[in-house]
Design a protein around this nucleic acid. Structure first.
Lengths: 213, 213
DNA sequence: ACGATATGAATGAATG
DNA sequence: CATTCATTCATATCGT
């Protein structure tokens, strides 16, 4: 496991518009679909990380996402979902990593060879890392707010006690490719039903639905 | 606006008959996929979408769920809760996507630039069934019933209209590397923003057993 | 070219 | 319903 992206900061592919390649990515089917996948520019990443670490933004709400993406659009093509996913992923992965690092009853006397904290720009420690690491430029003032972030690491170690695993086969099926009958009849869907039954799912879910029919 | 983005091929967790997996599927190894989580088969998904889009089923009631799952069981292992969650998620995500993209109260900068129109594998046109096309199989008689519930159709099916991708202007940069202003203002983030409504609680009983043990 | 890793995207499952 | 977490798939990128 390499440390996150150690130095991608300096030589990303091209921090401009990743689109418009038209150079045939894979099959060149369908004209240009660009890269299919959003490739953040370094500036975008920097801002995102700034928001993440210095401002404690972890799960921006829809409105924030809109704003963020609008703002980032200056630096390259980006859409709301990209921002959304970025935060989700970033948070998830940070946690995932931390989980291993922290709860791993492994050797810790390795002299730190394990793996670097990460991040070229800011460290994983959102506890305000050196308020002024600079950033390639000027006006970035650390700001006070950032501190407001709680370090909600907690999250009990939810053990994976799934004792299920019963993959019991569904048995033989008939002609699938045949046809999906036009539903609703069998769904028992009358125009009038749909009143919410109020059965509470949550814990009941296990019995409520399951089996028997 | 950019059409490109999700037109991949047919990614999606393909995994036809997850049941039992008898013998390695594709490739050579990697057979044990017995994940604890339900992996819908393409047929199941097709039916679910058919119900969702063509029949307007969004929040099926308990009974409907029973029926649907029973029906889908033909195509693979499935439980009621899977159906329940599927609809919940599908609906929620459809809404969310809209939330990210549209609903920009201020400044109408870029058209849409949103999410995936939807379905990777089958794609249905939610723009009214148009009695003619619709699904394969034409056995039963649609109409009538369905109408009772639909009404939520007519989204702006984005459809990948090749509108080029020349979006995002580099705008005046120059200060890019220079300064990421300390965000939060534009992100609309105050240290206090709780960010959520929190109205009624609806705490049905306090039962609390089970769970981890 | 591959193989490994990093990370965007998608979605099932939950929780509030 | 909205939001979040975990997992997994897909692909971009880098190393050798």
């Amino acid at each position: 496991m390499e440390p996150q992206q150690q130095l991608q900061q300096q030589q990303q592919q091209n921090q401009q518009q990743p689109n418009e390649d038209s150079g045939s990515s894979k099959g060149s089917f369908l004209c240009r679909q660009s890269s299919t996948r959003w490739t953040p520019t370094t500036d975008q990443i920097r801002i995102l990380k700034d928001l993440y670490y210095n401002n404690g933004v972890r799960s921006p709400s829809a409105e924030q996402i809109q704003r963020i993406s609008a703002r980032l659009r200056q630096y390259g093509k980006i859409e709301g979902k990209n921002v959304f996913y970025w935060f989700q992923n970033h948070k998830a992965r940070e946690r995932q990593k931390k989980r291993f690092t922290t709860d791993m009853p492994m050797q810790r006397s390795l002299g730190n060879a394990g793996w670097r904290p990460d991040d070229p720009i800011h460290n994983k420690f959102h506890t305000i890392p050196t308020p002024g690491i600079s950033s390639p430029s000027s006006s970035s003032s650390p700001s006070v707010l950032a501190v407001g972030q709680m370090g909600s690491f907690g999250y009990g170690s939810v053990e994976r006690s799934f004792t299920d695993c019963s993959i019991s086969a569904g048995g033989g099926r008939g002609g699938v490719g045949g046809s999906i009958n036009q539903s609703f009849e069998w769904v028992g869907m009358d125009p009038y039903s749909s009143s919410y039954a109020l059965f509470d799912k949550r814990k009941t879910m296990g019995e409520s639905f399951e089996e028997e029919q």
